[in-house]
Amino acid sequence: MEYLVLQILPYISVTIFVVGVMYRLGKWASARIVHNIVLTPAPPTLGGAAVNYAAEVALFRSLFKGDKSLWAGAWIMHFALLNIIGGHIVGFAFLGEQFKFIGTSAELSKEMSNLLGTTFGIVIWVALLYLLYRRFAINEVKLVSAPADYLHLLLLLGIVTCGNLMRLIPEYGVHYETAQTYFIQLATFQPVHLEHINFIFVLHLLLVQILMIVFPFSKLMHLFGMFAERWIINRPYVEPAPGLPGVKVSASSSTTTVTAGGKTTAGGV
Protein backbone atom coordinates (compact mmCIF):
# COMPACT_ATOMS: atom_id res chain seq x y z
CA MET A 1 0.00 0.00 0.00
CA GLU A 2 2.69 2.46 1.02
CA TYR A 3 4.75 1.39 -1.95
CA LEU A 4 1.80 2.04 -4.27
CA VAL A 5 0.95 5.46 -2.86
CA LEU A 6 4.49 6.73 -2.44
CA GLN A 7 6.32 5.11 -5.31
CA ILE A 8 3.93 4.40 -8.18
CA LEU A 9 0.88 6.61 -7.89
CA PRO A 10 2.82 9.91 -7.86
CA TYR A 11 3.96 9.41 -11.46
CA ILE A 12 0.44 8.61 -12.52
CA SER A 13 -1.21 11.47 -10.68
CA VAL A 14 1.31 14.07 -11.82
CA THR A 15 0.91 12.92 -15.42
CA ILE A 16 -2.87 13.07 -15.23
CA PHE A 17 -2.70 16.50 -13.63
CA VAL A 18 -0.34 17.99 -16.19
CA VAL A 19 -1.86 16.41 -19.28
CA GLY A 20 -5.41 16.99 -18.03
CA VAL A 21 -4.87 20.65 -17.31
CA MET A 22 -3.17 21.19 -20.65
CA TYR A 23 -6.04 19.44 -22.42
CA ARG A 24 -8.62 21.62 -20.70
CA LEU A 25 -6.69 24.82 -21.32
CA GLY A 26 -6.24 23.79 -24.92
CA LYS A 27 -9.99 23.38 -25.31
CA TRP A 28 -10.56 26.79 -23.74
CA ALA A 29 -8.02 28.35 -26.04
CA SER A 30 -9.62 26.85 -29.13
CA ALA A 31 -12.92 28.51 -28.25
CA ARG A 32 -12.97 32.14 -29.33
CA ILE A 33 -13.74 35.48 -27.79
CA VAL A 34 -16.19 36.40 -30.53
CA HIS A 35 -17.74 39.62 -29.25
CA ASN A 36 -16.53 42.43 -27.08
CA ILE A 37 -18.32 41.75 -23.79
CA VAL A 38 -16.23 44.03 -21.59
CA LEU A 39 -17.95 44.93 -18.33
CA THR A 40 -18.19 48.66 -17.78
CA PRO A 41 -17.20 51.06 -16.37
CA ALA A 42 -14.07 50.09 -18.25
CA PRO A 43 -10.89 52.16 -18.01
CA PRO A 44 -9.54 53.71 -21.22
CA THR A 45 -5.99 52.45 -20.70
CA LEU A 46 -4.33 49.06 -20.42
CA GLY A 47 -2.75 50.18 -17.16
CA GLY A 48 -6.16 50.88 -15.66
CA ALA A 49 -7.41 47.51 -16.81
CA ALA A 50 -4.35 45.82 -15.31
CA VAL A 51 -5.13 47.40 -11.94
CA ASN A 52 -8.70 46.08 -12.08
CA TYR A 53 -7.48 42.68 -13.18
CA ALA A 54 -4.99 42.50 -10.33
CA ALA A 55 -7.53 43.65 -7.75
CA GLU A 56 -9.91 40.91 -8.83
CA VAL A 57 -7.35 38.14 -9.07
CA ALA A 58 -5.31 38.94 -5.98
CA LEU A 59 -7.91 40.48 -3.67
CA PHE A 60 -11.26 39.10 -4.94
CA ARG A 61 -12.61 42.64 -5.19
CA SER A 62 -16.05 41.76 -6.62
CA LEU A 63 -16.62 39.39 -3.75
CA PHE A 64 -15.46 41.97 -1.22
CA LYS A 65 -17.95 44.53 -2.55
CA GLY A 66 -20.83 42.09 -2.46
CA ASP A 67 -20.46 39.68 0.45
CA LYS A 68 -17.94 40.33 3.21
CA SER A 69 -18.30 37.02 5.02
CA LEU A 70 -17.93 34.93 1.89
CA TRP A 71 -14.99 37.11 0.92
CA ALA A 72 -13.36 36.55 4.30
CA GLY A 73 -13.80 32.79 4.07
CA ALA A 74 -12.70 32.54 0.46
CA TRP A 75 -9.85 35.01 0.47
CA ILE A 76 -8.32 33.82 3.72
CA MET A 77 -8.60 30.22 2.55
CA HIS A 78 -6.87 30.96 -0.75
CA PHE A 79 -4.25 33.19 0.83
CA ALA A 80 -3.39 30.51 3.37
CA LEU A 81 -3.36 27.87 0.64
CA LEU A 82 -0.96 29.91 -1.47
CA ASN A 83 1.35 30.32 1.51
CA ILE A 84 1.13 26.66 2.41
CA ILE A 85 2.02 25.55 -1.11
CA GLY A 86 4.87 28.08 -1.17
CA GLY A 87 5.92 26.94 2.30
CA HIS A 88 6.08 23.32 1.16
CA ILE A 89 8.28 24.25 -1.78
CA VAL A 90 10.78 26.48 0.01
CA GLY A 91 10.60 24.45 3.22
CA PHE A 92 11.64 21.26 1.46
CA ALA A 93 14.14 23.05 -0.75
CA PHE A 94 15.94 24.89 2.07
CA LEU A 95 15.01 22.62 5.00
CA GLY A 96 13.30 25.46 6.82
CA GLU A 97 16.30 27.76 6.52
CA GLN A 98 14.81 29.88 3.74
CA PHE A 99 14.54 32.98 5.94
CA LYS A 100 18.32 33.13 6.16
CA PHE A 101 18.04 34.95 2.84
CA ILE A 102 16.32 37.83 4.58
CA GLY A 103 18.96 37.90 7.30
CA THR A 104 17.78 35.62 10.09
CA SER A 105 19.90 32.94 11.70
CA ALA A 106 19.35 29.33 10.69
CA GLU A 107 17.73 28.61 14.06
CA LEU A 108 15.32 31.53 13.85
CA SER A 109 14.47 30.64 10.26
CA LYS A 110 13.47 27.13 11.23
CA GLU A 111 11.36 28.46 14.04
CA MET A 112 9.67 30.98 11.76
CA SER A 113 9.07 28.32 9.16
CA ASN A 114 7.44 26.09 11.74
CA LEU A 115 5.40 28.88 13.23
CA LEU A 116 4.11 30.08 9.84
CA GLY A 117 3.38 26.56 8.68
CA THR A 118 1.43 25.71 11.81
CA THR A 119 -0.46 29.01 11.76
CA PHE A 120 -1.52 28.83 8.12
CA GLY A 121 -2.41 25.18 8.60
CA ILE A 122 -4.85 26.08 11.35
CA VAL A 123 -6.14 29.16 9.52
CA ILE A 124 -6.95 27.26 6.34
CA TRP A 125 -8.60 24.51 8.36
CA VAL A 126 -10.93 27.01 10.02
CA ALA A 127 -11.62 28.77 6.71
CA LEU A 128 -12.46 25.49 5.00
CA LEU A 129 -14.76 24.53 7.84
CA TYR A 130 -16.52 27.88 7.43
CA LEU A 131 -16.93 27.33 3.68
CA LEU A 132 -18.36 23.88 4.37
CA TYR A 133 -20.67 25.30 7.03
CA ARG A 134 -21.88 27.84 4.48
CA ARG A 135 -22.82 25.08 2.06
CA PHE A 136 -25.03 23.52 4.69
CA ALA A 137 -26.31 26.60 6.43
CA ILE A 138 -27.20 29.11 3.72
CA ASN A 139 -30.24 28.07 1.78
CA GLU A 140 -29.16 29.64 -1.53
CA VAL A 141 -25.78 27.93 -1.39
CA LYS A 142 -27.45 24.63 -0.60
CA LEU A 143 -29.74 25.14 -3.58
CA VAL A 144 -26.85 25.48 -6.00
CA SER A 145 -24.58 22.75 -4.60
CA ALA A 146 -23.99 19.38 -6.25
CA PRO A 147 -22.59 16.50 -4.15
CA ALA A 148 -19.17 17.09 -5.70
CA ASP A 149 -19.09 20.59 -4.19
CA TYR A 150 -19.18 19.13 -0.68
CA LEU A 151 -16.70 16.42 -1.58
CA HIS A 152 -14.13 18.92 -2.79
CA LEU A 153 -14.25 20.70 0.53
CA LEU A 154 -14.07 17.43 2.44
CA LEU A 155 -11.07 16.36 0.39
CA LEU A 156 -9.27 19.62 1.13
CA LEU A 157 -10.22 19.34 4.79
CA GLY A 158 -8.81 15.82 4.84
CA ILE A 159 -5.51 16.98 3.38
CA VAL A 160 -5.26 19.89 5.80
CA THR A 161 -6.26 17.76 8.80
CA CYS A 162 -3.49 15.26 8.02
CA GLY A 163 -1.03 18.11 7.62
CA ASN A 164 -2.05 19.63 10.92
CA LEU A 165 -1.77 16.27 12.71
CA MET A 166 1.78 15.96 11.43
CA ARG A 167 2.50 19.46 12.65
CA LEU A 168 0.86 19.26 16.02
CA ILE A 169 1.38 15.66 17.18
CA PRO A 170 5.10 14.85 17.47
CA GLU A 171 4.75 11.12 16.82
CA TYR A 172 3.24 11.83 13.37
CA GLY A 173 5.80 14.51 12.59
CA VAL A 174 7.86 14.18 9.43
CA HIS A 175 11.09 16.17 9.20
CA TYR A 176 11.93 18.48 6.32
CA GLU A 177 14.95 16.28 5.61
CA THR A 178 12.84 13.15 5.22
CA ALA A 179 10.44 14.90 2.87
CA GLN A 180 13.28 16.42 0.86
CA THR A 181 14.97 13.06 0.44
CA TYR A 182 11.69 11.51 -0.60
CA PHE A 183 11.02 14.12 -3.28
CA ILE A 184 14.54 13.92 -4.65
CA GLN A 185 14.31 10.15 -4.92
CA LEU A 186 10.94 10.46 -6.60
CA ALA A 187 12.09 13.13 -9.01
CA THR A 188 15.20 11.21 -10.01
CA PHE A 189 13.27 7.97 -10.47
CA GLN A 190 15.04 6.13 -7.68
CA PRO A 191 13.46 3.70 -5.24
CA VAL A 192 12.14 5.65 -2.26
CA HIS A 193 13.09 4.82 1.35
CA LEU A 194 10.01 4.14 3.36
CA GLU A 195 11.42 4.38 6.90
CA HIS A 196 10.59 7.45 9.11
CA ILE A 197 7.28 7.55 7.35
CA ASN A 198 3.99 7.18 9.17
CA PHE A 199 0.43 6.41 8.27
CA ILE A 200 -0.75 10.02 8.40
CA PHE A 201 1.94 11.08 5.97
CA VAL A 202 0.87 8.37 3.55
CA LEU A 203 -2.76 9.41 3.86
CA HIS A 204 -1.79 13.07 3.35
CA LEU A 205 0.04 12.20 0.15
CA LEU A 206 -2.73 9.93 -1.06
CA LEU A 207 -5.35 12.65 -0.66
CA VAL A 208 -3.16 15.22 -2.37
CA GLN A 209 -2.78 12.86 -5.31
CA ILE A 210 -6.50 12.30 -5.50
CA LEU A 211 -6.88 16.07 -5.62
CA MET A 212 -4.38 16.26 -8.48
CA ILE A 213 -6.21 13.57 -10.42
CA VAL A 214 -9.60 15.21 -9.86
CA PHE A 215 -8.32 18.72 -10.59
CA PRO A 216 -8.50 18.83 -14.40
CA PHE A 217 -11.96 17.27 -14.40
CA SER A 218 -13.62 19.50 -11.89
CA LYS A 219 -14.50 23.03 -10.90
CA LEU A 220 -11.01 23.26 -9.40
CA MET A 221 -10.13 24.52 -12.87
CA HIS A 222 -11.51 27.84 -11.61
CA LEU A 223 -7.90 28.57 -10.72
CA PHE A 224 -7.25 29.08 -14.43
CA GLY A 225 -10.81 30.12 -15.20
CA MET A 226 -10.34 33.20 -13.06
CA PHE A 227 -7.49 34.45 -15.21
CA ALA A 228 -9.15 33.47 -18.48
CA GLU A 229 -12.54 35.03 -17.73
CA ARG A 230 -11.11 38.24 -16.31
CA TRP A 231 -9.09 38.58 -19.49
CA ILE A 232 -12.40 38.73 -21.35
CA ILE A 233 -14.43 41.12 -19.23
CA ASN A 234 -11.84 43.41 -17.61
CA ARG A 235 -10.42 45.24 -20.59
CA PRO A 236 -9.77 48.80 -21.58
CA TYR A 237 -12.28 50.55 -23.82
CA VAL A 238 -11.64 53.75 -25.75
CA GLU A 239 -14.75 55.84 -26.39
CA PRO A 240 -15.26 57.38 -29.83
CA ALA A 241 -14.71 61.14 -29.99
CA PRO A 242 -17.82 63.26 -29.39
CA GLY A 243 -18.93 66.17 -31.55
CA LEU A 244 -21.54 66.32 -34.29
CA PRO A 245 -20.61 67.23 -37.86
CA GLY A 246 -21.58 70.70 -39.00
CA VAL A 247 -22.43 72.16 -35.60
CA LYS A 248 -21.76 75.90 -35.38
CA VAL A 249 -20.51 76.97 -31.99
CA SER A 250 -23.39 78.85 -30.43
CA ALA A 251 -23.18 81.76 -28.02
CA SER A 252 -20.96 80.25 -25.40
CA SER A 253 -17.86 81.11 -23.47
CA SER A 254 -16.45 77.65 -23.89
CA THR A 255 -12.83 77.34 -24.89
CA THR A 256 -13.27 73.89 -26.37
CA THR A 257 -13.91 73.76 -30.09
CA VAL A 258 -16.20 71.24 -31.67
CA THR A 259 -14.66 68.31 -33.41
CA ALA A 260 -16.13 68.53 -36.87
CA GLY A 261 -16.43 65.34 -38.81
CA GLY A 262 -16.63 63.31 -35.63
CA LYS A 263 -13.72 61.02 -36.34
CA THR A 264 -13.25 58.37 -33.72
CA THR A 265 -10.14 57.47 -31.95
CA ALA A 266 -9.66 53.74 -31.97
CA GLY A 267 -13.06 52.50 -30.82
CA GLY A 268 -13.59 48.95 -29.76
CA VAL A 269 -11.29 46.64 -27.92
Binding site: K27, A31, I33, V34, G66, L70, E140, K219
Partner: peptide, 18 residues
Protein backbone atom coordinates in the same frame (compact mmCIF):
# COMPACT_ATOMS: atom_id res chain seq x y z
CA UNK B 1 -16.89 24.98 -28.24
CA UNK B 2 -17.19 28.19 -30.20
CA UNK B 3 -17.68 30.80 -27.44
CA UNK B 4 -14.97 30.94 -24.81
CA UNK B 5 -16.98 32.90 -22.21
CA UNK B 6 -19.65 30.21 -22.47
CA UNK B 7 -17.16 27.38 -22.09
CA UNK B 8 -15.62 29.08 -19.06
CA UNK B 9 -19.08 29.40 -17.54
CA UNK B 10 -19.56 25.68 -18.07
CA UNK B 11 -16.25 24.67 -16.54
CA UNK B 12 -15.14 27.07 -13.85
CA UNK B 13 -18.11 27.97 -11.69
CA UNK B 14 -17.42 26.99 -8.08
CA UNK B 15 -21.05 27.33 -6.95
CA UNK B 16 -20.24 29.86 -4.26
CA UNK B 17 -23.80 31.16 -4.47
CA UNK B 18 -22.83 34.83 -4.56
Amino acid sequence: EKYRPLMLAMESCTKCGH
